[in-house]
Amino acid sequence: MTVFIVRRLMQSVVILLVMSVIVFLGVFAIGNPVDILISPDADQMERERAIRALGLDLPLWEQYFVFLRNAAVGDLGRSFVFNEPALRLIFERMPATLELAFTAVVLSLVVGIPLGLYAGLKPQTATSKGIMAGSIVGFSLPSFWQGLMFIMVFAVMLGWLPSTGRGQVGSFLGIKSSLFTRDGLAHVILPAINLALGNAALIIRLTRAGVRETLLQDYVKFARAKGLTHRRVVGVHVLKNILIPLVTVVGLEIGGLIAFAVVTESIFAWPGMGKLIIDSINQLDRPVMVAYLMMIVFLFIVINLVVDVLYSVIDPRVRLQDVKG
């Protein structure tokens, strides 16, 4: 187990290094930020001074080593646009994104598991068929369009909920989040549902498939024969065993949600890091792009590792080994 984790961590460092080269070269070799950042009226002197100030006059490989040396101490460059350290900019936006992703995960579990359970226990009823049809639509709906339609119906036509921004941010136990104020909660509902919908559809289908498979197992038949209540059979014996696939998928989906938050944040003007990266791409703000991409790859490596370890804790049949190769 320890060997497995150490090996994975070493692989992760290699992946991060490779990513840094790809991202740095790609991002810095394309486009000329000088044209964007310096006004076209600036004379030659001003231009050169600005280029030197931004470190753009050095050869590319030298820029990379400067970048790598700084990255090692947590400095991923300054944003051209905000003139602030890129990493700080990302850390500032991260809570908003994590809050949104977290709310979406909870929402999709709270909605998905009961519906999936119902559809698995009573597969022939009309309600179950409705749930399954709904989950197919949930899968196929492009999330950005679904978000627009939410705005149209709930914000424009009905006027129930606000459609942009994060609302008032409250503080509780030192954690700042818009989940702690009424206004903030109203703001988070639409984006969270938008982000959660596809995920909820996935959880419904997984839960249903898991339940149908588990119900046929001998231990469930045995529990029934022992005279346990239906409630206990479903709540303990069935539910516990469908947790294994659910944990894996939910774990991996947290990463997916953070990535997909890019779309949701753009639609609902949610001030998270997803909106930041889209703005940065459009403004060619290269340090922020690099910092975001490195950050998210790092986040993903951590999430994947945690899911693998959790998996072995929940399911004692799984033994972590490194695949020979």
Binding site: L25, G31, A259, F260, V263, I281, V297
Partner: peptide
């Protein structure tokens, strides 16, 4: 080849597309 495939499949498609478009223009 297969490690590359595994690595790529562990990231969501939108993220990879985002990285590529940021890199390629």
């Amino acid at each position: 080849i297969m490690r590359l495939v595994d690595l790529q499949l562990s990231f969501p498609t939108i993220l990879i597309a985002l990285i590529l478009l940021a890199v390629l223009g």
